[in-house]
Computed example of a mutant assay.
Amino acid sequence: MTTEPLAELLKALAARNYRFITPTPSTCRRMAGKALTGRPDLRDIFGWSRAFAQCDLDPALWALLDQAGALTWDASGWRSRFRVSTVHERLFLHSAFPANTADAIFLGPDSYRFADLIAAGLATGGHVRSILDIGTGAGVGGLVAERYAPGAKVLLSDVNPAALDLARVNASHAHADFEVREASGLEGALMDLDLIVANPPYVAGQSGRTYKDGGDMHGARLSLDWATAGMAHLAPGGRFILYTGSTILDGGSDPLREALEEAVAKTDYQLGYRELDPDIFSRELRGEAYAAAERIAAVAAVITRPS
Rank of each mutant, 00 (worst) to 15 (best):
G272E: 14
I241N: 01
R257T: 11
G251R: 08
L271G: 07
K266R: 14
V264E: 04
L276Y: 02
E262R: 13
D250H: 15
I248Q: 02
D254S: 07
R257E: 06
L256F: 08
E261Q: 14
L256H: 09
A259F: 02
G251H: 08
E275A: 11
Y269K: 14
Q270D: 15
A235R: 10
V264R: 09
T267I: 09
Q270C: 14
G245D: 01
T267E: 13
Y243E: 12
T228K: 08
Y269A: 15
G237I: 11
A229W: 06
L234A: 10
R274H: 07
P236C: 05
A265D: 10
Y269Q: 15
T228P: 01
L276D: 02
G251Q: 04
Y243V: 13
P236D: 07
E275H: 07
M231W: 04
A235E: 06
L242N: 06
L256M: 09
T244D: 02
Y273R: 12
R239L: 01
L234F: 01
T247P: 00
T228G: 02
L260Y: 02
L234W: 00
F240L: 15
S253P: 00
A235F: 03
I241Y: 06
L234P: 05
L234Y: 02
G230K: 04
D254L: 03
M231C: 13
G245S: 06
G272T: 13
R274M: 07
Y243R: 14
R257L: 09
P236T: 14
F240K: 10
G230R: 04
E262P: 13
I248P: 00
T247V: 09
T244A: 08
Y269C: 15
E261T: 15
D268K: 14
L271S: 12
L260T: 07
L242H: 05
G237K: 07
Y243C: 14
V264P: 00
I241A: 06
G245C: 10
E258M: 10
